[in-house]
Design a protein around this nucleic acid. Structure first.
Lengths: 160, 160
DNA sequence: TATTGTTATACTCTATAACTATA
DNA sequence: TATAGTTATAGAGTATAACAATA
């Protein structure tokens, strides 16, 4: 927990971090600002979900499994946009925690059908409430219209 | 080495529609969309700057050094929001590339005054043009007003 | 005693390639 | 041959702690 200090009002090309440095063109670059915002939001995610000990990627896996019971690891890999080997480690962790299970598929013996356990369902329901509250809090300085607009713009960025 | 830059082996960073999975609440969460957008923009950064072999963090360091010649490593650490030990590795890389130098400070013999070399200045100027073009391209689907609004909203997110 | 830079270390996240068992 | 899952490995990226030189 290295408390992130807040910067003052950020004018273009003027000192914005606590060091008093000139950040030059950085505050005008979408990529730089996306990274800053993402780091800030992920840090608040960790704070909000700290007691539950679930990382963003693990939360996303729980959500996708919960919404698509019985999906294959390959499908999960595509949905989360990570490699198949990453899915193995993710599922190992979820199974160790008793949150998900791999069941043999009835149609293709190469694949596993991934399901949440009852404990996984329960934790997912709690996580959804916690994460929704965290997301609302982290965007609390935006009006509802601004938040909708931000979401629409971000979607267009990752689809271009 | 530099040759690790392939962004094409893995599926493109948009997975929701192509895997046929239900992503449930994920597309309504600011943190999830920020991460997706940031990954997409960083991949395009790598594609646009590939020949120059400079990562986003190294580009940011060049910009800050260029705008604050003679600053200390501590100040750079604060501006980039990374640990002092990370600055050491960053500067080692920049010095190896001949882009920056550590000079002894005249006022405090514990500190180094960090400067760009002429080669660093030249590369930075080229990088600024390349990165600006990349940033404009990656936000090309947004109108000027939408882009300004996105930038303003992102700044507010990382300041909350 | 506190701070700057350094080193060594470790941990996370993710990608790559080789392996197996199925298809 | 091709694919799903697994394993081992490796590379970034970043954080922590201890240390020497200096304040």
């Amino acid at each position: 927990m290295a408390g992130k200090r807040k910067a003052g009002t950020q004018a273009p090309s003027i000192a914005s971090s606590e060091c008093g440095c000139d950040l030059d063109i950085l505050p005008t670059l979408t990529g730089y600002l996306l990274r800053r915002a993402q780091v800030a939001v992920y840090q608040d995610f960790a704070r909000a979900t700290g007691a539950l000990d679930v990382r963003p990627a693990q939360f996303a896996a729980l959500v996708v499994i919960g919404a698509n019971p019985g999906l294959s690891q390959r499908a999960l890999s595509g949905a989360l946009n990570i490699d198949r080997s990453g899915v193995v480690m993710l599922l190992d962790w979820l199974e160790t925690r008793g949150l998900a299970v791999r069941r043999p598929s009835s149609v293709d013996r190469r694949t596993h059908a991934v399901h949440l356990t009852p404990e996984g369902e329960t934790l997912l329901a709690q996580l959804k409430r916690t994460v929704r509250a965290h997301d609302d809090a982290v965007t609390g300085s935006l009006s509802p219209d601004e938040k909708s607009l931000l979401i629409a713009l971000l979607r267009r960025l990752s689809h271009s």
